[in-house]
């Protein structure tokens, strides 16, 4: 029985796999990390240009509003925080490199949704509201009597639920 045997592990510095992963931190910021395999580097050099002499770029793509912009990054960096302007949008990040004003892609990240940080405006003010039955999952439109003014006032247009002093985690 080797129970209590001492163990010591260090995390691998890299896995020699090409990946680009995009994560959401908040409605204002995303986090991206990447790893480039030796094989990808060799292929890039063969196909495009000397890898070491090209410049790494993160191409930030807003899929919802259909625009992109580039951020040059340090060749030694392997992760980056990206501030975003537009909430309630889908984003992807493409890792690539530039050389002689050309851009060559290496790997596309997963796509993420940057959430809206405030309530959306009310829609369908005078229309029927969609209800779903939780048991049979049938949907039906119902005209309901809602004094919207009052309810809207009650829960306002503030992003509530995010005050630090009432977060459970601030108690621990």
């Amino acid at each position: 029985m080797l129970h209590n045997k001492s163990e010591y592990y260090e995390l691998p510095i890299k896995y020699d796999e090409t990946v680009v992963r995009l994560l959401v931190q908040s409605p204002k910021r995303m986090y991206v990390y990447w790893d480039i395999s030796d094989q990808t580097i060799q292929e890039f050099s063969k196909k495009y240009f000397d890898y070491a002499k090209s410049t790494p770029i993160l191409r930030i793509i807003n899929l919802t509003k259909n625009y992109f912009y580039d951020i040059p990054i340090d060749p030694f960096a392997n992760n980056y925080y990206i501030d975003v302007e537009d909430e309630n949008c889908e984003y992807e990040v493409e890792l690539g490199r530039t050389f002689h004003d050309k851009f060559a892609d290496i790997y596309m990240s997963n796509h993420v949704t940057i959430p809206n940080s405030t309530p959306l405006p009310f829609e369908n003010e005078n229309e029927e509201i969609l209800f779903k039955n939780y048991i049979c999952l049938d949907t039906k439109k119902m005209r309901v009597n809602i004094p919207k003014q009052r309810l809207r006032q009650d829960y306002g247009d503030l992003p509530f639920g995010i005050e630090d002093n009432i977060s459970s985690n601030s108690m621990k």
Partner: peptide, 14 residues
């Protein structure tokens, strides 16, 4: 709370 209040479409009853 904001999982509900920021939902899409905006819920009628918060």
């Amino acid at each position: 709370s904001h999982g509900i209040t920021n939902a899409n479409p905006k819920p009628l009853y918060g």
